[in-house]
């Protein structure tokens, strides 16, 4: 077992340094899928979360509870629901999206969206408690207050987006079901790890896992440093 772990690190190192083309294609697809899902979830989720944070309507409490619950939606359930929707025999079958990266983006968007909405709601609600009177005083009410709240909450919201990125990049259940783990098309880092594990090549699987963690680490480090620098300038 110890030799497995040693050789896993060697494999990870070889994959990253050797720029193995298959490995790079898998990494590129993983990033494309997860980043696309993140952008879609952010575009929809930030304004939605902010509106949920500052408006009051009947059923708001229930909505918040549902959104918070969906943060824990098991990826495999999200994948299964989407599989049934996108299947040729399902209501959205006409798009022919099943077993394509598009389906994987949709699945991961579904996973990230509740995180973005829930954390944005919390952040903007707190911020609104502090800013509300001033913003209303200068005429920024309702949707007009949203850009200010999102911008001033940007550090907390960056963390929310990173949490979403982490959830999406780490999950395997949803992309495996709707993507099909097709070599060269829908094979991501996590589905490759699952495949290599099932082939018994534990060193390669772990090597890929180490590479994935490394990648996530790099992205978080960049986001953290950028936040630090920005925070120094605007408090």
């Amino acid at each position: 077992m110890a030799t497995d772990i040693v050789s896993a690190f060697a494999t990870a190192f070889g994959l990253i340094v050797g720029l193995d083309p298959t490995f790079l294609a898998v990494v590129a697809l993983s990033l494309k899928v997860t980043l696309s899902a993140l952008v879609l979830a952010a575009v929809a989720g930030l304004p939605l979360g902010a509106l949920l944070g500052i408006t009051r309507f009947p059923g708001r409490g229930a909505t918040i509870v549902v959104v918070n619950t969906l943060m824990g939606l098991p990826p495999v359930v999200a994948g299964l629901v989407l599989y049934l929707l996108l299947s040729r025999s399902g209501p959205l079958g006409g798009f022919g999206l099943l077993f394509t990266p598009g389906a994987m983006i949709a699945a991961q968007t579904l996973l990230i969206l509740p995180i973005v909405v829930a954390l944005t709601r919390q952040t903007t609600e707190d911020l609104w408690g502090e800013y509300g009177e001033h913003l209303r005083s200068i005429g920024l009410t309702g949707a007009r207050a949203v850009p200010t709240l999102l911008w001033d909450g940007r550090f907390a919201l960056t963390t929310a987006l990173l949490a979403g990125f982490g959830r999406a990049s780490a999950e395997v259940g949803a992309v495996l079901i709707v993507g099909g783990n097709i070599a060269g098309h829908t094979r991501t880092m996590t589905t490759t790890i699952a495949l290599e594990t099932s082939k018994g090549d534990l060193a390669l699987a772990l090597g890929l896992g180490i590479a994935l963690v490394g990648l996530t680490l790099a992205i978080n480090a960049v986001a953290f440093s950028a936040g630090r620098i920005a925070a120094r300038h605007v408090g």
Partner: peptide, 20 residues
């Protein structure tokens, strides 16, 4: 920032459209 978000939304939209 808004422009960047809009652009990337467009790109991911295209990415999906390309699959369709």
């Amino acid at each position: 920032l808004v422009a960047a978000v809009a652009a990337s939304a467009l790109v991911s939209g295209l990415a999906i459209a390309e699959e369709v």
